[in-house]
Design a protein around this nucleic acid. Sequence first.
DNA 1: AAGTAGTCCTGAGTGC
DNA 2: TGCACTCAGGACTACT
Length: 278
Amino acid sequence: MPELPEVETVRKGLNKLLKLNKNSSFKVVKLEFLRLNLRNKMPKAKLRRLEGQILQPIVRRAKYLLFPTNKGILLNHLGMTGYWRLFDGEQKHDHFKIHLSGGQVLVYNDPRRFGVIDFVDVNKESQSMWLKHLGPEPLLKSFNANYLFESIKLRKAPIKNLIMDQKIVVGVGNIYASEALFLSKVNPMHPGGKLSKKRCAKLVESIKNILEQALKAGGSTIKDFKQAGGESGYFARQLKVYGRSGLTCTSCKAIIKSKVLGGRNTFWCEACQKTYKE
DNA sequence: AAGTAGTCCTGAGTGC
DNA sequence: TGCACTCAGGACTACT
């Protein structure tokens, strides 16, 4: 269940593993399709255009990994269980292989098939169905109190649903949404439009804080980037509310509550995160 | 238009 | 030990 910090950790790990940097040049020798059906159907013919092209360092937008070449970009979303590894023998749920010059072979494996592999034209990233609706990156200055306040002021949906909406801000998934709300003492059920600008500022600050902590943990404690998307990535960070239903709050000793919100399990402390009127 | 529910999928966890 | 069942989760689509 990779969220932004995990995807970023995978990105860095892959670039390091493949030695992709400004000075390197590896050619995509061959693509090998083992199982086409992920969340989308992999566009085999389009992706073949990448063969013979030089692979540039991998970049990230939201939770998507982008593998750029001169003639097109390979787009990948890890979904829940997707991960890349250097080929070391066939494994169950291997979907896709990239053979690089120099003999390196990268394999994509995805048991639950929630992932995406697609082709995006160069300079048309903004038209891609996966990328065109995306909001700002949470760690950039464009994601700030004013922006969040303006984006949600007419919305009645619970604030938790809104910060997980990739049109509003990208990269925040179910786990860090609960954690950021706890840190800012905002109740997950609070209607978005009823948050004051001050509360928006607090929440923005908390989202940045949580993601930065997780990024730092990913960079320093996750030894194997393949695991960055799995449970081990989260163990690096002490989760204060997520998955702690029925246990005591680390801050006030009240019991952590949980409830399904927007189809996702949500955790909060009723005492620390009271609803309020302003 | 906004909000909500349903959908895809497999493995891990639970209860008997 | 093994079977049946539930749950997790991102982001799309399809309803209300």
